[in-house]
Design a protein around this nucleic acid. Structure first.
Lengths: 205, 205
DNA sequence: AATTCGCTGTACCGCAAGTACAGTTTTTCC
DNA sequence: GGAAAAACTGTACTTGCGGTACAGCGAATT
């Protein structure tokens, strides 16, 4: 039982590296099993097909992102009582984390799933959609708190504002990959932070 | 000469539809040639390999986007002399165009290329990078004009601001695909517009 | 001691991307 | 109108990948 999970985890580790380096389709089952020192039959013992691998990879990735958001914005909340300040502190920490990843963010598997729509089955797409909705809800709640203290200076939909953070992160990853600029994603989060500041910060006269 | 181009264009039309519907890897050469009523040999007469097809598709896509940006922001410039107003008018028109595309934006091939990095060759990635840099320059110039008239209320790098528009469009497409929400991309452009407004608009006291 | 788990090994199938190359039609140019 | 080049067709073959089928085997569990 322990051994099976160990091999499964090793398969996922190797697959994750390969997929983030060259894409899901370009990663063959043969190369994964070679890296894990097992046979092809062994792979199909753990995963019924390649789609199941995609599902497991996506689940792991989403869990890790959930953890990251919880840690960062939980910590930010500890540091200050002001909801706006907590948001701004959290965004700065997020930008720093994204900038500190060597060679840039490895690439969001959520976006990869979005761009390979038809290649993946309904389970993968549903998992993807649920993660997006959960992240929207997470940030939406924070923005509700912010707006309660300091009303926005431009009438915006707070769901759209929450989505915008996801959009700049995803878009930032595309930028950083296209331009080979590892820090592009972090800088985009800083831009979003600037927007939040202008939107909610009480006017200096 | 005319006939060769005609067949080539037909191949690209059919390929573009299939690729946007189900992804590049999932689109087979066999199905493209079946749709175009030629043989596989005929395909390889026009394109040395599938990568050359990707390159041609990306080139066509980039040209169309160039044209769209030129049209929209050229028109906006005609409508007003104020650089900030021109920017805001252009962004609103862009948002409307993105919202009016039935079933949402078909998906940016630039991002698809970014997410399939290794699957494509150096030419594809270079074409991609050049398009990004050209678009950055295009919007950077407009923001230079805006900033000359009305200085930003938060010190931001104008290249990053130009990149942010690209990021929210790319990220908006990911959102719209993940959530099956065709209008998400347009709404994200509206959010960016709100930021630009707050950043540059003279203070109402 | 029997059974289940976690694999190995071998052999095979179908599909897709190409390769090779000879032959054929269609268009262009002088 | 005839030669040459362009635009294909047709056949046959190779490689790589995802996946199936199934028999067996050693180690761990019960």
């Amino acid at each position: 039982m322990a051994k099976a999970n160990e091999t499964r985890t090793r398969l996922l580790d190797i697959a994750a590296d390969a997929v983030l380096a060259k894409g899901f389709e370009a990663t063959s089952i043969d190369e994964i099993v070679a890296g894990a020192h097992i046979t092809k039959s062994g792979f199909f013992y753990h995963f019924p097909d390649k789609n199941a691998l995609a599902l497991a990879l996506l689940q792991r990735y989403i869990d890790a992102e959930d953890q990251l958001f919880d840690d960062i914005f939980g910590r930010a909340r500890e540091l200050t009582d002001d909801p706006l300040q907590a948001m701004l502190v959290g965004l700065k920490m997020l930008a720093e984390v994204l900038e500190d990843i060597p060679n840039g963010h490895p690439g969001c598997l959520v976006a990869a799933a979005a761009y390979n729509e038809r290649a993946f089955n309904r389970d993968v797409r549903k998992l993807n959609e649920n993660a997006m909705l959960r992240w929207r809800f997470f940030f939406r709640k924070m923005f509700d708190d912010v707006a309660a203290f300091s009303p926005p200076r431009d009438p915006v939909n707070l769901d759209d504002l929450a989505d915008m953070l996801l959009a700049v992160v995803e878009g930032g990853i595309v930028l950083s990959k296209s331009l080979s600029d590892p820090e592009a994603t972090g800088r985009q989060v800083r831009m979003f932070r600037s927007y939040v500041k202008l939107l909610f910060q009480p006017q200096a006269h």
